[in-house]
Nucleic acid binder design. Sequence first.
RNA 1: GGGCGGUUAGCUCAGCGGGAGAGCACUACGUUGACAUCGUAGGGGUCACUGGUUCAAUCCCAGUACCGCCCA
Length: 887
Amino acid sequence: MLEKTYSPAQVEPRHYEKWEQSGAFAADTTSNRQPYTIMMPPPNVTGSLHMGHALTFTLQDVLIRYRRMSGRDALWQPGTDHAGIATQMVVERQLEAQKVTRHDLGRDKFVERVWDWKAESGGTITRQLRRLGASPDWAKERFTMDEGLSAAVRKVFVTLHRQGLIYRAKRLVNWDPKLHTAISDLEVEQREVKGHMWHLKYPVEGIDNTYIIVATTRPETMLGDSAVAVHPEDERFAHLVGKHVRLPICNRLIPIVADEYSDPTKGTGAVKITPAHDFNDFQVGSRHDLPLINVFDRDARTNDEVPEGYRGLDRYDARKKIVAAFEEMGLLEKIEPHTHMVPYGDRSGVVIEPWLTDQWFVDAATLAKPAIEAVETGKTRFVPKHWENTYYEWMRNIQPWCISRQIWWGHQVPAWYGPDGTFFVEETEAEAKAAARAHYGKDEPLVRDADVLDTWFSSALWPFSTLGWPEKTPELARYYPGDVLVTGFDIIFFWVARMMMMGIHFMGDVPFKDIYIHALVRDEKGQKMSKSKGNIIDPLDLIDKYGCDALRFTLSALAAQGRDVKLAEGRVEGYRNFATKLWNAARFCQMNQCHPVDGFDPKAVKETVNRWIVGKTAETAARVGTSIETYRYDAAAGGAYQFVWGTFCDWYLEFAKPIFNGADEAAKAETRATAAWVLDQILHILHPLMPFITEELWEQLASRGEALMLRPWPVLDGLADAGAEAEMDWVVRVISTVRAVRSEMNVPPSAQVDLLVAGLTSEKAAWAATHADLITRLARLSAFDRQAEASRIAQASSHGAAQMVVDEATLVMPLSGVIDVDKERARLDKEIARLDGEIAKVDKKLGNADFLARAPEEVVAEQRERRAEWATAMEKLREALERLSGA
RNA sequence: GGGCGGUUAGCUCAGCGGGAGAGCACUACGUUGACAUCGUAGGGGUCACUGGUUCAAUCCCAGUACCGCCCA
């Protein structure tokens, strides 16, 4: 016998271990089944499970469990990425506690330390994923720094370099002066900052007492100015174009140039140009062939390019000193408060400095072209579709991708430099040496490029590198391209776009057919969860409190397309209640000997209730399946919830009670078998959403040969039964009507009352006879007179009775002495008025010649039918009111 | 400034050309042997606003307002 309540904490680990150890998660490369592949977006190895992970992995697991049950050879490929900067920072922080820097250790020792850290702490998130019930093929787990994946990275780098799609160049990059590395545009966060606009006077050379005033938010960069720009059509400055200013402090002559970059409406209309420290100025500089004067070192301190007395200063100290000097010289026109956007490194939190360095770049624009086309032609499809706009927008304006990073943890650039700076890009050192020998005609010492590659470079290869590429493995042939990528919109640029580029370039085919973009998880007020706001909900806490299935079901139910997921704990509680409801329904079945019957054929059931529930079950299985296939998780969860609670528990099990307590042994046996069958189907249907409780019930309700998670998804054709549905719908309507009137007329639930029925059609009279027990019990009747004499109806009514109409039948509930006749009259009046209103609305439509002429026939017929039904009901209610007049 | 999304019951959200829906919350009643993590019943909405298309608009189109996100 099942326990009184379900205890997730005891059940979950047990099933998870069983599944994992039995190999239930594993794909079968040798099977004949059609593969279904999901590449898990590898979480950061330093990460721990947050609500965003819980959502994305729940959605992926729902898909993979459903497809596995549906007979596909399901591969959910798991793994983690090495998160270059983040991981290096974690280990550096540990070293810092021991007062050691990575430079003290040296590169090799440091990297060794990182691997040690990874071995010890890198498994946190994969352990937590197990608590979520995730069912990836753990045996295939990969790490972006694995030997195989690293080989793929080298191969891709060398190939792209040979194709001219990777090159080395001196360019401005986003330099992080704290981490001492370049970072990508995407890792730069633009923050609104309240700063100042300094107006500086630059003396025009050769004209006494004439100044040009430039406005800047970064006065310290004036040390690197190489021009002043004004708009070509700005008449205020036209006479100065071509002249020079003498740059204060530096005492350098720099030209005044005309360039449309200068906005006459902003600031003073003249703008200082610092090509080595500003991306826009860099463009202006290249248009006018201006020198690039780099005035900062890697710490963003002033270097030796600047005048003595200003060297070796932090950029903010330099700013103070320069502003003071301008003021002293009388060259500071004014200072205005100014709010503007300032770039910050998202990892280090310091202000990013555009800085001129040698870096490796990928020609992303070339790789983007076929990736754009793949979406345009529908080879890859975004769901919801509108996300393709975001993708196009970025891909069509894509910049060269800076892939080198000045850190130690990651894939070291496979390039070796000879003594004269010539470099050799090869997959191995031996090959580089050979290439160098060919170049120099003799062996020369080579030095490997110290930089490592952006983590996203290796992540971009994930859909094929994890399958063994560049080897031609059976996995690669079988599981590429993947069926769907499930991820959040925040990663479209970082990752999705790059996988598309690399997948198409190296595999000749897109990496996945669908890209399902889900929303962000927010708190119940719609705010982003963040540590600083203190509104973080830990998914593991919710699992502890309500069980994993409740959390999974909640996230699925809230995952409506195109909406953020606003998570309130109350929702989780509600779905925990749903789990309890299911548990108790199973318990009820068990108590009533509803055991699965071998060879049970749902098509062969005879009792109407059973034909009805069997049909509804089939409908639900199909609906939930279709919903999952179309990524309508909310509909899948809603459909299952509605059926289990609203149909199976609320009605079917209630209908079963009188049968179980009755004398018809055949009906009893059939109903027991049917209930057991339906419950089993429910367990199948709910399994992708709620794997643990369903597996537990599956195990406890009967002795089974296999785990539920490996059972086939129910395909139940030919079970729809319109007749049974019409019949049971009528029964439900009769019971609901009686209950509603009882409640409204304040008939206590404990009071059993008679019900007299008149005017049933012969079909419905038969239904009433069949279901007399059900109606009697569920409407709490003492007697159910299905063919009441007119005289008895009249007599009951005149003594005071509640009367109702269901279709063409009149139901009378004698309440002599109990009922408030005026109240009943009022109730009937109100009902009549309501019908009157409805009829008037329909009449208006039917009276419209255009409607009759232009609306489809079915619509017109439907309106007529509706009118007839309401008219009948109104007629019956009028008669009821009439009968009441004597009371 | 450019782009995208949203505005439907107190809250969170479905629906999306022909009778306004769900869950939660709320109110009343209720322990009838699965379940109070429950049952039964009920109240609650000019579907943001203004125009247009249509026989018919919450739904399609245009505009307005407000909210959110992304990019510059």
